Computed example of a mutant assay.
Amino acid sequence: MPKNNNVMVVAGQAGSKSTFIGGLYRHAHRADDINVTYRKKEGNVEEDFYDGVIKRMNTRGVYPDQTTEGYVVELTLSQGSSLVPDIDFQFVDIPGEQIDIVLSNIWDEVKNDAIDESRVESEFRSVRSKIGGDEALDIGDWETIFKHYYSQASMILFLVNFHKMTIRDEEPTFDSDVLEAVSGQKVKTALVPTAVDLLDYDPSDPDMKSKASFSPRTYDRGLDAHLDDKLRLGDAPKVQNLLDHVEQNERIAFFSTAVPPADPTNPKSDKLARDNDGGFVTKGFDEVVTWLRD
């Protein structure tokens, strides 16, 4: 590890992973200098990804559905030029609460750099034929699938929803030891808080951001300061631990995204804020693309 320029998005059930990937797709589709395509790798891509994420967000203007069967899709961002390499996202969406179990089971191997890639590839060849079939995948199958794509990635985006962690007291599915291990394995690493609009932060507003020009990494100091001010971090030690670690580790980038709701005062509504192009509002995804290209 790593073997190529693949990107993997890592998040637990509370990480807003589907919303992030739908927001990135919308941002890239709207951009003048980016072409975005996707292709099925394995599983229930048509229903879980296209109908459950892309159509719901772009056509119906609502947040994604819950994943039912699970799938793997590759999202490719390109500029149509051989001078600018394509960016390939390996998006592994494991259904329901299984994702949290899968991640907790593999972190020791990740932290010890102990994934047996030869064994994983052998197991993956037999497991992949089951995805989307009549036979349900178990936790061990999903661990094999996840480790297969993880082992191929050279860039990892860790998503975390601090709003859920603080307001709803939900647990993160990774800790600072995982971030330290991944960033130390010569893998380009970023911690990306999602849904920061719910914490009154706008990642697209230059007045709310303060990038350190002397830093060799992307690090949103405005976001760091805002979270310190907005959250009662003494009551959220796991959030504080992640923030402290990322601030001290120069190998980890730190920026945020948001896909705002139409009515922030109504938590029961699943409607997205609409833009002026017939789609929905996305914030901070230009930073994602910039980080990937740097």
Rank of each mutant, 00 (worst) to 15 (best):
G222Y: 03
K55M: 03
I115N: 09
K186S: 15
R128T: 05
Y71R: 02
D88Q: 08
D177A: 13
V246G: 08
T290F: 05
L233E: 04
H27C: 01
N58H: 03
D200H: 10
R168T: 03
W107C: 00
K188Q: 15
N266C: 08
E117G: 11
D32Y: 08
G43E: 04
V160E: 12
K41N: 12
K147I: 14
E135P: 02
L191S: 12
L272K: 04
S183V: 07
D275N: 09
S104D: 14
T194R: 12
A195W: 10
D141T: 05
N35P: 06
N5Y: 02
V102T: 01
K188V: 10
T76W: 01
K186F: 15
S81M: 13
R217Y: 03
V120C: 11
V92N: 03
T189M: 07
M155D: 10
G23W: 06
T19I: 10
F89S: 01
L242P: 06
I21E: 09
L191T: 09
D138P: 06
L242Y: 11
V288R: 00
S154I: 01
L227Q: 02
W291S: 00
L24E: 04
A28R: 03
N35V: 15
D224V: 05
E123V: 01
F214A: 13
P206E: 13
A253I: 06
E135T: 13
T290W: 04
G234F: 08
R125Y: 09
S82E: 13
P260R: 07
N58R: 02
R293F: 07
F124C: 02
N35L: 14
Y25A: 05
D93N: 12
S82M: 14
V178N: 07
Y71W: 02
S154G: 15
S126Y: 11
D277A: 14
S176E: 14
G278S: 10
V53Q: 01
G132K: 13
K40P: 10
Y63S: 09
G133H: 11
D108L: 08
S18G: 10
M208Q: 15
F174G: 02
L75V: 15
V10F: 04
V178P: 09
M8W: 00
R221W: 12
S126G: 15
Q66D: 12
